[in-house]
Nucleic acid binder design. Structure first.
Lengths: 151, 151
DNA sequence: GCACATTACATAGCGCGCTATTTAATTGCA
DNA sequence: TGCAATTAAATAGCGCGCTATGTAATGTGC
């Protein structure tokens, strides 16, 4: 009897954990992207950086980092790979030589066309209605916000 | 005029992408766990494996993999680290020597007590109501399911 | 019973994502 | 002015998570 409560409510059970659902949904999502992005020669984090640059070209490493919630230890080697792939260019800012400005090459800009098909393919893969996705997105944004605050 | 449609609906915009919210929420979540689990000497994926073992001790590598949606290339080195930490034991199954059975050591079982405080700490960090978490979890499980199917 | 496929796990190598640290440039203040 | 503090990026090293491949044990068909 004394262990009945522990049985009926056990927070250490894998199946009851939101975090595991978040974790494994993210892995599944990345797996779907991997196939789509292979055509573009991009990984998912690289794709995110390209999204930032397609919106606003010529930004610093830390600006990319703020947008994606990643720091230079992650971005520097990633950007070097994008540079080696001929998609971006990195150069020290003249007004503040601590900063590195990342710009798209012609090839990097051109890739945007090919990437145009990706969002719809992902949308189909989710099998969700659009408003369900919008709702889920805002919940996850709120969750990230609160988790970041408490960290 | 001709580019107005592209401006009003641009699926390549970072801010409109559910997947990025999923990605960054997961990173934020892992970051919160990192602090909590440091006391236990575990990483988040290692914690997941321990959750599986605390529920059902003495399972094969592939059984753990099915539960966590991970394969042996990920689990083998992770399990070796858990073994090196003295938390689990790995031994070939006698009835089928291809399989490796993973069991908890006394130390591994003992760690469950210390881990008992983790779920509530995470729950607080999410800042969510319980039913909101349950709802979000089921949506994410559904999403993972459909993404996996389409991959 | 023997070649063949299949299965379970391990290994190699790559790209994140992190902490901790380093280097170099800029800022700030006595 | 000079020198410490701060800032931006880079680097080192670790642990995933993946694809591709290898290896050994088990099944299967003839």
């Amino acid at each position: 009897m004394s262990n009945r409560r522990a049985t009926t409510f056990s927070p250490l059970q894998l199946d009851s954990q939101l975090c595991f659902s978040l974790y494994s949904a993210q892995l599944a999502m990345t797996k779907v992207y991997r196939k789509l992005l292979a055509d573009l020669g991009l990984t998912y984090p690289q794709y995110l950086v390209m999204l930032v640059l397609w919106e606003a070209d010529g930004v610093t490493v830390s600006q990319i980092g703020e947008r994606l919630f990643l720091d230079s230890a992650t971005l520097t080697p990633l950007l070097k790979r994008l540079e080696a792939a001929g998609l971006v260019q990195r150069q020290r800012a003249t007004e503040d030589e601590r900063q590195v400005v990342v710009s798209l090459t012609a090839e990097g800009r051109a890739l945007k066309r090919k990437a145009g098909a990706v969002p719809e393919a992902i949308f189909c893969a989710t099998g969700c209605e659009l408003d369900e996705l919008v709702d889920l997105k805002s919940r996850l944004d709120g969750l990230r916000e609160r988790l970041t605050r408490s960290a």
